[in-house]
């Protein structure tokens, strides 16, 4: 009974906060509410007994996404765009229908939710899927946790390509800045001593926790992506506290950090073809290979997410010439 009560309050709060995120006219407040919503969602995942998703949601969904949004909104370009949007919302035909866009989106979202509800109710009552098959074959995969064995062995190909998605996002940010490292990005002009102090405490702890999550992924919920996200959060904190973080890395080191995991999967895949198929590592060395691949995921995820943050803070687009001028074309 009490548990139901907690769930109902939680679900209700998520809906209310989501509603507030959408209706809040001030961009900054809306983003803060969005972060709060992320934390509540993460609690919801805990209640659904999915601690690994809860971790990812807290670290990426709430933390990093939130700070990315805030950081991007601080740029002049974003503020100009916001002003233009406000202007557009109060001129022309929209003047006569204030909030028409929101009403339409709200109606669309509600309709979508209703349809989704029908679809979910329609699903077969008995949970079907590959859970059993994964459990049967787990022994051959080299790890003792079904999620990890699916991610890093049975469907390692998907994981590899997902790592590629992350990598491409970072490459896209670099391409927009027309540069190969983040040295030209904005660093904090004035930071407070207390933040530096906190960063000094948090960084070693973050490394410890990331290491724990990485290691525990082989036999219980946890895993490399979550560990990477936590490390990334620490890197972001460092940057906010005035340290250079990833924006201090040279082109080669930044590139290596971003590429490490994708390249490692590629190499493992290649070696696998001598035994049989691409990405084959079924026996004996399976566990070692999985641990090594996960370690590369930790590093690359951390560097990539931190690079996205560093990249989001600098101006781009119209004044890209300025960035270009700072980056000699032949330097590497």
């Amino acid at each position: 009974m009490l548990e139901h009560g907690v769930d109902i309050v939680l679900a209700g709060s998520i809906a209310v906060v989501a509603w507030r995120v959408l209706l809040e006219p001030q961009l900054f407040r809306s983003m803060v509410l969005f972060i709060a919503m992320g934390l509540m969602l993460s609690l919801a995942w805990v209640r659904l007994a999915a601690p690994d998703i809860a971790l990812a949601e807290a670290a990426i969904g709430a933390g990093l996404t939130g700070i990315l949004l805030i950081r991007a909104a601080q740029t002049e370009a974003a503020q100009e765009a916001a002003a233009a949007a406000r202007e557009a919302a109060t001129s022309g035909w929209r003047r006569w229908f204030p909030g028409a866009g929101r009403i339409v989106s709200a109606a669309a979202a509600l309709a979508f939710a209703a349809v989704l509800l029908v679809a979910v109710i329609d699903l077969p009552g008995e949970p079907i899927g590959l859970t059993e098959a994964a459990a049967t074959e787990m022994e051959a995969s080299g790890v003792e946790h079904p999620v990890t064995s699916v991610l890093l062995n049975f469907r390692a190909y998907d994981t590899w390509l997902e790592v590629g998605v992350l990598l491409l996002a970072a490459m896209g940010v670099l391409a927009i800045h027309r540069t190969y490292n983040l040295r030209s990005t904005r660093s904090e002009e004035h930071t407070m001593l207390v933040l530096t102090w906190l960063a000094r405490i948090i960084l070693p702890l973050a490394v410890l926790i990331a290491g724990y999550l990485y290691w525990s992924g082989t036999h219980q919920p946890g895993g490399a992506f979550q560990a990477g996200a936590i490390l990334a959060a620490a890197l972001v904190l460092m940057q906010l506290a005035g340290f250079r973080g990833v924006s201090g890395l040279s082109t080669l080191w930044l590139g290596a950090g971003l590429m490490l995991s994708f390249a490692a999967f590629l190499a493992v895949g290649f070696i696998g073809t001598f035994e049989g198929e691409f990405l084959r590592y079924r026996h004996a060395t399976g566990e070692l290979i999985i641990l090594a691949l996960e370690l590369t995921i930790v590093v690359s995820t951390a560097v990539t997410l931190a690079a996205l943050f560093a990249g989001a803070g600098s101006q781009s687009g119209d004044d890209s010439d300025a960035v270009r001028a700072r980056t000699p074309p032949e330097s590497l």
């Binding site: 407070m192 207390v194 933040l195 102090w197 906190l198 405490i201 948090i202």
Partner: peptide, 9 residues
């Protein structure tokens, strides 16, 4: 530690 820092900021 976190809330003390946040409070300062």
């Amino acid at each position: 530690a976190g809330s003390a820092t946040a409070c300062q900021l």
